[in-house]
Amino acid sequence: MNGTSDILCIGSVLWDVIGRTDASMRQGNDVPGRITRLPGGVALNIAMTLKRFGLTPALLSIVGSDPEGDELVTACDDMGLITAFLLRDARLPTDSYIAIEDNGGLVAAMCDAHSLEAAGDRILAPLFDGRLGSAEAPYSGPVALDGNLTEALLIDVAEHPALRKADLRIAPASPGKATRLTPLLAHPGATLYVNLEEAGLILGRTFDAAFHAADALVAAGATRALVTDGARSAALGEYAGTISDTPPRVPQKRVTGAGDTFMAAHIAAERRGESGAVALRTALNAAATYVSGEDPA
């Protein structure tokens, strides 16, 4: 799909395969449940939620030229997302993610983002060659960036002149990739969206509350940091100070994608003119709605 975008979503665009059961699981269990395949990946999850909030995202990623990739691009087009800047490569398969969830939440997950990692900075070509920006005319709009990119590519994003004016909104993708975000702390337009564990990994410390983690990320150089902690209080840290709020209590129907929903809802809230505690509350409400099994809008 072609068109004018409100925000760029850079990172993983893939198929999510999610198995859910109402039972409680332990290692080695084989239980009945439901298995679904849905368009996913951090960047795409954020883009889909932003679209529900009335924005028009453009995707920068790689999708294979295989049948799975063709089906995925068609699904993105049908949702009204801009796919014109996607890299298609016949040599690389479409990436995928698999997760198992039980009645207590996420049991295990695995992301195969090898094609995204292999593509490297080729997915960013539209930001460098003039289609969306260049070193001489930097892109100055909002960018949702996910940590599935390689550390080298994230460093390139942090330092490249074509992105020096961008409003970077950054998610780590998983705790195992959180430390990749360290170079982005120095970007003047960066906002981090992390959970409590990820904040601790970035800073090499442990925290007992989101408030302290957000405060510490700003002290370490982050312009802004939003830290979530499941059903416990979340926090927004910035130079002016740190605030916190507690998400609504809801029945837990799903987990995968909740953090992406929180991030997208916060971005959309700020695009509407909300700020500070109001935008934080809007994002927490949207994430709670998602966890309860409903789609926020």
Rank of each mutant, 00 (worst) to 15 (best):
D215W: 09
A216M: 09
A216F: 11
A216Y: 02
L217Y: 02
L217N: 08
A219V: 04
A219C: 03
A220Q: 04
A220K: 06
A220P: 08
G221P: 10
G221C: 02
A222I: 00
T223F: 13
V227G: 01
V227W: 00
T228W: 01
T228Q: 08
D229C: 01
D229S: 14
G230P: 08
A231D: 13
R232G: 10
R232V: 07
R232S: 15
S233H: 03
A235L: 02
L236A: 08
G237A: 09
E238R: 14
Y239K: 09
A240S: 14
A240C: 08
G241A: 07
T242V: 12
T242S: 05
I243Y: 14
I243T: 13
I243M: 13
S244D: 13
D245M: 11
D245F: 14
D245W: 10
P247K: 05
P248Y: 00
P248L: 05
P248K: 05
R249E: 15
V250Q: 09
V250T: 06
P251A: 13
Q252W: 03
K253H: 15
R254L: 09
V255H: 09
V255T: 08
V255Y: 05
T256A: 14
T256H: 11
T256K: 09
G257R: 03
G257H: 01
G257I: 03
G257V: 03
A258R: 05
A258P: 01
G259E: 10
G259K: 07
G259W: 05
T261W: 03
T261P: 02
T261Y: 14
M263L: 12
A265N: 02
H266K: 05
H266I: 03
A269K: 07
E270I: 13
E270Y: 07
R272D: 15
R272Q: 13
G273I: 10
G273N: 03
G273A: 02
E274A: 15
E274L: 14
S275A: 08
S275C: 12
S275P: 09
S275R: 15
S275K: 12
G276E: 02
G276L: 11
A277Q: 13
A277N: 12
A277G: 10
A277L: 12
